[in-house]
């Protein structure tokens, strides 16, 4: 078998891996940030609801949610495998990202909120102008982690027949009998993606760093 074709076939799966990640990571961020704000600044009930959400979602293996969304709930909503996968990973990630952002909010001192309110900013204005800009900066480092997890978890959509990297490695491995090269290629691609995303976020963190004297 032609090595170039072999690698090319597996590489084509990257589109799906990146696609799933491109949906799940940002939607998890938006939901997670929203939920974190509710968890920190919401009322007692809201706090409890968010904490329950976080516990439940982080307790569900992504593959289970994915299968529920695609197979069990097919009566209510007819999602394509790609979207079922992206949405389930996004939902689960929202719980993890909620914890990341929640931690980041708590690491921004309560004093920042007090100082903002003291000059007459409303709570919402304080959150938007003071809390979030600092919080999101603090969250970049833990995000590299989350990005890596989603890139790798995106392989789970193979269970629904999305021809992403892992599934392609399985298929080409089966047809050629060269499983080891196939899985190594897949591992290498995943590694490259995770490495690149980490570097990109690292650059972003550096760029957004607040200047300070050493």
């Amino acid at each position: 078998m032609d090595v170039a074709n072999f690698i090319k076939y597996i590489l084509q799966g990257t589109v799906y891996t990146l696609g799933v990640t491109a949906v799940a990571l940002p939607s998890g961020l938006i939901l997670g940030t929203l939920f974190a704000l509710l968890a920190v600044y919401g009322g007692k009930t809201l706090k409890q609801v968010m904490s329950l959400y976080s516990t439940v979602m982080r307790g569900i293996p992504p593959i289970v949610l994915l299968l529920i969304l695609y197979f069990v709930m097919s009566g209510e909503i007819n999602l394509s495998p790609f979207w079922a996968g992206s949405i389930s990973l996004g939902i689960i990630s929202s719980a993890y990202q909620m914890e990341i952002v929640r931690g980041a909010i708590l690491s921004v001192s309560a004093g920042q909120m007090m100082a903002a309110r003291a000059i007459g900013l409303t709570r919402m204005q304080a959150i938007i102008n003071i809390i979030l800009p600092q919080t999101l900066r603090n969250a970049i480092a833990p995000w590299s982690n989350e990005a890596a997890i989603i890139i790798k978890d995106s392989s789970l959509v193979y269970a629904l027949g999305v021809p992403e990297i892992l599934r392609r490695a399985q298929l080409i491995g089966a047809s050629s009998g060269s499983y080891l090269p196939a899985y190594l290629t897949a591992a290498l691609i995943y590694f490259a993606l995770v490495f690149a995303s980490g570097r990109l976020l690292g650059l972003l963190e550096k760029k957004l760093e607040i200047p300070a004297n050493p």
Binding site: L34, G42, L46, V49
Partner: peptide, 9 residues
């Protein structure tokens, strides 16, 4: 706002 969000969740 909190109420709307709660419903959403």
């Amino acid at each position: 706002k909190g109420l709307i969000l709660l419903v959403l969740v």
